[in-house]
């Protein structure tokens, strides 16, 4: 039973530096279960660094990030990554077939996926079962990104971190991914933190938006509030391209 009052992710006073350069300053953020939150900001503002802390691809300081109330540093890192899936801008598929890619993480855990399981996972990513046998190297950008989504879903994660997954896609493929993620939230109750720089994407998918500027949270709220035509919010200024 999900405690709806307990945030899925709670970030408290997260600061991060690399090679002596500060990347994140005192970031506070919370995401409720089943919520889709978009993270906006100019290049180099720390969006991807923040995202990578949530599944510990980058190590955050202790007592700064909590998943369902637990400090993620206290969790087994491999279990954490199975609970919190990630899709990158580049699909980075492995050599082999689509089925090989989707079965990758269950195989690491000693489970063999049946073709029915693979078909189910493909269906979640809106791909027909016939794709299972296709060589991963021969897919289009949009198809490859869907396979990387199905590959992440094979772990049955509660949450997804999306690092500009539509950044390299054409508009039709991009819209298709939005619909798929919205469907996954409806059907699986997935919590999603989504880094993007497409305002149309934000308006379409986000329940709430955080704006990161120079590693600091500069604004927060629902997109229809932050981005309405008469908005005085800095997010609207950013959306108008005046902060880049």
């Amino acid at each position: 039973m999900i405690d709806m009052k307990m945030p899925r992710f709670q970030i408290r006073n997260l600061s991060l530096a690399r090679n002596g350069r500060a990347i994140l300053h005192n970031v506070n953020l919370s995401i409720a279960p089943g919520e889709i939150v978009c993270l906006l900001g100019p290049s180099g503002s720390g969006k991807s660094s923040l995202l990578r802390c949530l599944n510990r691809l980058t190590e955050p300081p202790p007592q700064t990030i909590f998943l369902d109330g637990d400090d993620i540093i206290s969790l087994d890192v491999l279990t954490l990554r199975r609970r919190v899936g990630m899709v990158f801008q580049s699909p980075a598929l492995f050599p082999g077939s689509v089925a090989d890619n989707i079965a990758y993480s269950p195989r690491l855990a000693g489970q063999a996926l049946t073709s029915a399981h693979i078909a189910d996972l493909l269906a979640l990513a809106d791909l027909p079962p016939v794709y299972a046998a296709r060589p991963a190297a021969e897919l289009s950008g949009g198809e490859a990104q869907r396979v990387s989504l199905a590959r992440a879903l094979a772990n049955r994660p509660q949450s997804l971190l999306l690092d500009e997954p539509t950044g390299a896609l054409d508009p039709a493929s991009r819209r298709h991914i939005w619909e798929t993620i919205a469907k996954l939230r409806r059907e699986l109750g997935l919590t999603v933190l989504w880094v993007t720089h497409y305002m149309e994407e934000v308006r379409e998918v986000a329940d709430r938006v955080y704006l990161l500027l120079d590693g600091r949270i500069a604004d927060e709220g629902p997109p229809d509030h932050l981005l309405r035509p008469d908005s005085k919010h800095i997010t609207a200024v950013f959306a108008a391209g005046e902060l880049e």
Binding site: L57, R81, M86, F88, S90, A92, F94, L108, S148, N155
Partner: peptide, 20 residues
Amino acid sequence: SPQIEAALALGATGRQAAHP
């Protein structure tokens, strides 16, 4: 590194991610 990080994000150990 993109494939290796993708494997790590799926729950692979460093050795498993780099093995191929």
